[in-house]
Nucleic acid binder design. Structure first.
Lengths: 193, 193
DNA sequence: CCCAGTATGGAACGATCATTCCGAACAATT
DNA sequence: AATTGTTCGGAATGATCGTTCCATACTGGG
């Protein structure tokens, strides 16, 4: 009957996501979100619910739009070695962008909230499982094609791949220097051959 | 001239440290700290300064008492292989203690604050450098003694050791299951031989 | 053109935040 | 026993927190 929202629901969610991504849940106030999105308080509440609901929606959007899309894309268009390197590089390339060096939203959230919030822990763990499954698939593919040493057990290598990625994402937030980050990436890739 | 504080300054700092360690900076209120330490607000301010100063003091205490002590102890009393494994195990063994599974205070802080606080980033980075130096020393020692493959370049291995540890510490906060954590530890140790 | 009905902007809510202030409690020195 | 200097408990501060309410602005259907 009357009138649509005069802001873009998805674009606003993206901006809220970026605010949470950069500063975390506790350090991002509703006032910050109003400023970051340009949308009024009441409209945010009416559209997304309370702060925690908005955060969860933003986290799910990241999981779906950023993480899932990245893996799907890389699984198709690259060789195994390139695909694995590209996962690391997606985050390393953030480093050169002054306003976008926030690491991984899921990892930031894992440390801030997962220990005390079961629902968030589930989401984070499911994402980590899929990332590890991606690494496992790529490692096996590379072993079959002869790019990687086929005598190694792929499963523990996939575990290590995930741990190396998560470790690099910790470093990104405290010391976003390319040399440190690429060293982690190359260190793991070399261990595959 | 008259009268000493009737609470133990260091023990109180320990309790504040544990509160920050478990819940992070933003999620720990001064009220929480009063409850956790049993010391009055005014006394906390008079003794340690404001919240940020208390946090920094607690973080420095962790760095000195927990991290530094652990590395010094392990460097003396173990073989290289055992020493490296023991660093991982120190954190893995937290998992079975219901009230102590907080991961590493420095890593938790790295993700919450280091990206927006240079002073904290410096402290975190210095600690990471010393951990990596420990791994490097242990790897070289093990290569000389024949425990590890001496043909590998020790430096990137030390990088990977640190990344693996940090990655495991991310997992500890979202999925503190021993099987996942030991897999990371063993995965790295196997890559040394 | 008017009414129905939702979105908007901004004020207002109570709760909690970090921080400060103040009088009472206290031990050591005179 | 009186004085001194510090600590302690708790109330009080102003700011900010998340959340809600309400009058106003506005558009689509009658």
């Amino acid at each position: 009957m009357p009138w649509e929202k005069n802001f873009d629901i998805d674009e606003t969610l993206t901006r809220a996501m970026q605010a949470f991504w950069a500063h975390g849940y506790e350090a991002t106030s509703m006032q910050d979100l109003v400023k970051a999105t340009g949308v009024n308080r009441a409209s945010i509440y009416a559209t997304y619910g309370d702060k925690r609901a908005l955060f969860l929606t933003a986290l799910r959007k990241y999981d779906g739009d950023v993480r899932r899309r990245m893996l799907a894309e890389l699984a198709e268009t690259r060789t195994p070695s390139e695909a694995i390197a590209a996962v690391f590089d997606k985050f390393i390339s953030q480093t050169s962008v002054p306003q976008g060096n926030w690491g991984c939203f899921l990892v930031n959230t894992a440390l801030e909230l997962a220990a005390h919030d079961g629902e968030i822990a589930e989401l984070v763990n499911a994402a980590h499982d899929e990332i590890e499954a991606f690494f496992l698939a790529m490692i096996r593919k590379g072993q079959q094609s002869g790019d990687f040493d086929p005598d190694r057990d792929a499963k523990p290598l996939a575990h290590q791949a995930l741990a190396s990625l998560l470790g690099m994402l910790v470093m990104i937030r405290s010391r976003p220097k390319e040399e440190f980050l690429t060293a982690v990436r190359d260190g793991f890739l070399n261990s595959l051959t």
